[in-house]
Design a protein around this nucleic acid. Structure first.
Lengths: 177, 177
DNA sequence: AGCTACATGTAAGACGTTACATGATTTT
DNA sequence: AAAATCATGTAACGTCTTACATGTAGCT
């Protein structure tokens, strides 16, 4: 259902758009929150139109189809945002690596953590580029802040873990907030 | 591939086990890192046996089949841990809600953030119960620390966002580490 | 005898990725 | 004229969830 929510959210926030536009919007803005390519988006829009959540507002050049959110779609979106209990399913390859870190020797473990840290730093840099503190109001600004904090938490974890692995601190201790 | 890694990791860390045992281990220890039920685990173990990564060591009562990791399996596991670039695919319903927060009125937005905060706090409490600072060495202790930090980051975000929504702070500003 | 925990599976369907396929318009 | 970008789709395959199905062993 979350793909629907993401698509409805974009249509609600930015107005009518084609599947192509939505795929681009996914790449640019939603990327750090949810992922979907055009091969998933096009069929989903058709299904959503069948269900009355969106409608083809107009057709442009090159077979371009502009979808608009319907009143039913808006209602559905708000219902989900307020009423739906966010699922706690987590599937993180980085966390899986962290879990199995004790199976490796110290040298290899340091290598893996360093790699994870580099990824988190790249992610943080990418997020910093998306919004500056000056631009105060835009859709997704709260998610951007959340993404930054999550990336920073991963970097902090990597630093603490590297310190442990290098024997500079006690292992497994809780380092607080 | 990550399900394989998780299963191989458990077999490597805790020794031979049945599919049933592995499903239980998923529930208890791996839950905050990767999820899988028995309906996914049983067929995967069969495929892994076909591929030579595990083997049926013995069969016990009630049709119980004990799987053990093979040398090839161990090699494969280490290869993945060190060599595989962790995918950055993120799909978080909480983050999606955060993204779409601006579509809601202040009252509803506060409600949603409060709900997310409660979930993060429950998660943090659950993780705290899994390991005490005293027990210094166990498989997954690094992932536990990571999970705690991620949960704390979410709680911090929720508090900052609530402050913004209640008009106590500037919106969208970067709050640093 | 009935309940609970152990133990393993299959099948249908939803969700997601990769590869393939096609054609129109704009830019170089 | 060729290349890039716009624009939409299908098909095959892999992963994940939910529901269904079966039988054993221990406990009360």
């Amino acid at each position: 259902m979350s793909l629907r929510i993401a698509l409805l959210g974009l249509l609600d926030a930015k107005g009518p758009a084609s599947g192509y536009d939505l795929a681009k919007a996914f790449e640019r803005s939603l990327n750090h929150v949810w992922q979907a390519g055009h091969t998933q988006i096009y069929p989903e829009l058709v299904k959503m139109a069948d269900d009355g959540l969106v409608e083809v507002e107009s057709e442009g050049a090159r077979g371009r189809k502009i979808y608009a959110i319907t009143r039913e779609g808006t209602a559905w979106l708000h219902e989900w945002l307020v009423g739906h209990d966010p699922s706690t399913v987590v599937r993180s390859e980085a966390a899986l690596k962290a879990f199995l870190l004790t199976l490796l020797g110290p040298g290899e473990a340091i290598e893996v953590v360093t790699q994870i840290k580099a990824h988190a730093q790249a992610r943080l840099t990418g997020l910093e580029c998306l919004g500056t503190p000056a631009s105060e109001a835009f859709t997704g600004r709260f998610a951007l802040d959340l993404g930054r904090r999550q990336a920073q938490a991963m970097i902090d974890w990597a630093n603490a873990t590297l310190a442990t692995l290098e024997g500079r601190r006690v292992p497994g201790a809780s380092q607080g907030a």
